[in-house]
Simulated assay, not measured.
Amino acid sequence: MTIVAGARPNFMKIAPIIKAIHVFNEKNKKIKYRLVHTGQHYDDKMSGDFFKQLGIPEPNVNLGAGGGTQAHQTAAIMIGFEKEIDFHRPDVVLVVGDVTSTMACTITAKKECIDVVHVEAGIRSGDMRMPEEINRMVTDSICDYFFTTTELANANLIKNGISEERIHLVGNTMIDTLYQNIENLIQPPIWQKNNLKQNEFFLVTLHRPANVDNSRNLKNLLDVILRSSAPYPVLFPVHPRTKKVLEEITYEDMNLVQMDPLGYLEFIYLVNNARCVITDSGGITEETTALGIPCITLRDSTERPETITIGTNELVGIDPNNIPPYIKKLNSGKWKKGNIPKMWDGKTATRIINNLVDIYG
């Protein structure tokens, strides 16, 4: 089996799968695997640190396909992955999530007549402006088996004509990673430096084009967040994409604490202690739901609606003026408590491996 990882969200999803393989191999016949890092994220804070902190073994190969436009990156991944599977042909390729690497490696493997299993299949936002939505749709249209996080994802696949025997509801590997590391979280230096206290700061992450590519929009968004969250400080690990725009406008505010992207253990430490997380990420909404932390999502749509219907997340759109009423609701103690979706129990990776063994023997 070849396991593909390319970007920060992928690493959190493959870590428990690899651990589950090693546990399985201690008592059963060996599952052999190669780990391929496409290099889609090439910054160490976005990639390397995650391998170290999550106990992911050194990849067998790094395709070095980072940088460039969507098209350049897709092409570089496909060319590199084609060479990889020509030299090391697997029985099955396992892809996770919805990044460019997921789609590119799926297409390449299927053209080589190799089975592809998609972990986190079937999620949909309905927003065709998102590159991730294209990646999901293309991947799910040609892969062979589908491992899903929720019953809604199953329903999406069945609606698209996928037969039920190819779909396996297994849960969420992101939550496996969260539970496996919750006792090992690391307090980042910023905590002591800024005299932070639990439940007395907001945590913000922004990287989607609608929020960050226009400097005026980004400034307006940060202005509203800072006004609404006062007097609490706002912690802002800055994504490389966002950093370029911030540097153009040299944005500063005494209540805004900007920092480089954090390692997984440091970032989740902040999530777990935040008063509220404000984000345009999908994966973070799953982590806040599992941890019971209020979350405000600055998007018009989400591929993870269970974080809203079941969890602690609220979808507020990209208009900054929508934010203050939600923060007011939070500060008045009226935020919903939320629950954890079915099978988000930390045992997803074990179910994945058991299903793979049943399918491929």
Rank of each mutant, 00 (worst) to 15 (best):
G68L: 10
G68I: 09
A71H: 07
H72A: 05
H72C: 02
Q73H: 07
T74E: 03
A76V: 04
I77T: 09
I79W: 00
I79H: 08
E84M: 05
E84C: 03
E84H: 08
F87P: 01
R89C: 05
R89N: 05
P90C: 09
L94N: 13
V95F: 00
V95W: 00
D98V: 10
S101D: 02
T102F: 00
M103Y: 02
A104G: 06
A104H: 06
A104I: 01
T106V: 14
T106A: 09
T108D: 07
T108G: 10
A109E: 13
H118M: 05
V119S: 12
E120L: 09
G122H: 01
R124E: 04
G126H: 02
M130N: 09
M130W: 02
P131I: 01
R136M: 00
T139Y: 02
S141H: 00
I142P: 03
D144Y: 05
Y145Q: 03
T150K: 07
E151V: 08
E151A: 08
L152S: 15
L157I: 15
L157A: 13
I158E: 07
N160Y: 06
I162H: 02
L169Y: 13
N172T: 14
T173R: 11
T173I: 04
I175N: 12
I175V: 12
T177I: 01
T177P: 08
L178I: 03
Q180N: 11
N181Q: 09
Q187K: 15
